[in-house]
Write a protein that binds this DNA or RNA. Structure first.
Lengths: 336, 336
DNA sequence: TATAATAATGTGACCGGTAACATATCCTTA
DNA sequence: TAAGGATATGTTACCGGTCACATTATTATA
């Protein structure tokens, strides 16, 4: 590595001006006589000069670097957040450091390193659930949460409108004439599980359908837990005719369990998922699901973070993004 | 942001030593009298001092930052590469900038920005195929390719042993008594498609099965292309009894087409995929596939990159990782 | 005890930009 | 033509570390 070690002073020497004038040209600020500017630009060309970001950071006290911490990088939802954020960041002249922090300890270490070294100007935190270690981020740090809302007025966040999402999913099933609607939730400790649950209840309520405890199964987002949920439901007499799974993986597990039990989806039982993960349309049957615009959420988060860095007195927004229902073939009219 | 603006000189003043002695302590190098070291460390504690990475980069000419450029961040395979690389990088004290560059132009711009600004010490390039713009990376830059091998002796790479993988997949089908084995390839311009194809041919050869042009369909990695491939195969008389799809998405598309055509997988026809993507085990039927250890590939790539940064005369390794066959239920014995 | 050798610490410059202020140049206007 | 104001450019210090070398304190050797 290395090379192109041309500095502002080399350019200045060649152009016969002071280094400060070169600085003025590369920041195309101030008034520089057009003729001088031209001379400097020629010198820059000739020497293939380009400014050293580190030196600039040093002098300006700004790094133009954001950091994104996520439980992992492979989950499709998280990866889309990051991709959206990265794109927006780059569009605005920032780079994005990414790191995965699967547990509280890694998270704390990472945040410490990032902040202590002053390598980054702001933090994007992806997490499905706000935990104590998240909130230990010092207050003076610009941070935006994606996926969960810490509900602290100095921390911005971008979340999905889970309540409405849960409402939409449930309402879709109700409109298909289902009344025995089971739900496979994520861990109930997680905010989004709770939100979706509230939406589910509200929709039942609005339709005058009584809520039944036995129709709720707490999963852990894994396909396996979806599978087990169905085993649980099928043991009951008067089983549900429709299932709302709070994510697609659990929906897929549920469908598999139904198939293994000889039930046909959607003929015997409808299933709606959540996330619209890749290939959701290629499952058998293609999955009806709720789409969250993860890409947009990432972009919005980056925007918000940059704005809070550049204009620190701007208020922190807590953005809530609306979901969208995608109807495919895993849900159908209840004909009994 | 900001805060904790303590510098090495503040610490020096408090400890009653010179700033250089503080520098010695924080780099725990040189001989510093234990008693002095203690005084300095106390001062560091008291002032909550921690070194400024930017200043350090400036002085040392090193940023301890790597960059990873990928066509996108959401593809599971790419994301695993990145996650593996990030972990290894962090373990060795580096941070990882990630960016997506879906096309040649973005790629070129990005590389320029990264290199010109001297923000990063090395490049991790994820790509399924080496294209001209990739090779325009200046020679003095440390770079490691993941997924494709530029075959230039100054660029390291980590790739899958595609030929062996293709061989394994095909041999698996042959052992199940299949002789009419079709293949859905990726774009044949891509190195990995070609490698897998060579393995396929070698396995047929070894078993004395003639190669038939009509059994090859060129897909584009999408599920849709897998679907179309099957439509093509089924039109032929004397259709294949087994299909090797060069990735799981195409395999899923193929299975769907087979189902739509009333064929049962694996009873009527066996399908083997490639990648072992998430939920491959939850498809119907659970997908037999070839696993590439993407996580390890990412780690190896980061290792290689760091070593080539720290010891520039080390030779560039072109690592080739072995695949693994995962047998599930989409393939079975051909009983006719 | 004088002197060399070694260990411990200090000094000042430097990395490559930017900021603040100083100076020089040019054009108006009285 | 001298003074005043704007415009253009230069000077110097500074950001916060590290490096090379100078200096001082300590110990070993003659």
């Amino acid at each position: 590595m290395s090379r192109s070690r041309m500095t502002i002073r080399d350019v200045a020497a060649l152009a016969g001006v002071s280094h400060q004038t070169v600085s003025r040209v590369i920041n195309n600020s101030e008034r520089v006589k057009p003729e001088t500017r031209q001379r400097v630009e020629n010198a820059i060309q000739e020497l293939k000069y380009s400014p050293n970001a580190v030196a600039r950071s040093m002098a300006r006290g700004r790094t133009y670097t954001l950091a994104c911490i996520s439980p992992n990088l492979t989950d499709f939802t998280y990866a889309s957040f990051i991709e959206g954020a990265e794109l927006e960041a780059r569009r605005q002249g920032y780079f994005l450091l990414t790191a995965s922090a699967p547990n509280a300890e890694t998270f704390a270490t990472l945040v410490n390193q990032l902040l202590a070294s002053r390598r980054t100007e702001g933090l994007l935190v992806i997490t499905p659930k706000v935990e104590p270690h998240h909130v230990r981020i010092p207050r003076y740090v610009s941070a935006v949460f994606i996926g969960a809302n810490p509900k602290l007025d100095w921390i911005a966040s971008v979340t999905l409108d889970d309540e409405n999402a849960g409402y939409m999913a449930t309402e879709h099933l109700i409109q298909l004439n289902h009344t025995h609607i089971a739900q496979i939730t994520g861990p109930i400790a997680e905010e989004s599980s709770q939100g979706r649950m509230r939406g589910y209840q509200a929709a039942l309520n609005a339709a005058g359908i009584p809520f039944q405890r036995r129709f709720i199964y707490e999963g852990d987002w894994s396909a396996t837990s979806g599978y087990m949920a169905v085993q649980d439901f099928l043991e009951q007499e008067n089983a549900p005719s429709a299932i709302f799974a709070q994510n697609d993986r659990m929906a897929v597990g549920a469908i598999r369990a139904l198939r293994d039990a000889g039930r046909h989806v959607p003929k015997n039982i409808s299933v709606i998922g959540f996330d619209d993960m890749p290939l959701a349309s290629y499952f058998d049957p293609p999955l009806t699901t709720i789409l969250q615009d993860t890409y947009r959420m990432g972009r919005e988060a980056a925007c918000q973070l940059i704005s809070s860095i550049e204009k620190p007195d701007n208020p922190c927004r807590q953005l809530c993004v609306e979901p969208k229902l995608i109807v495919r073939q895993s849900t159908t009219l209840n004909d009994q």
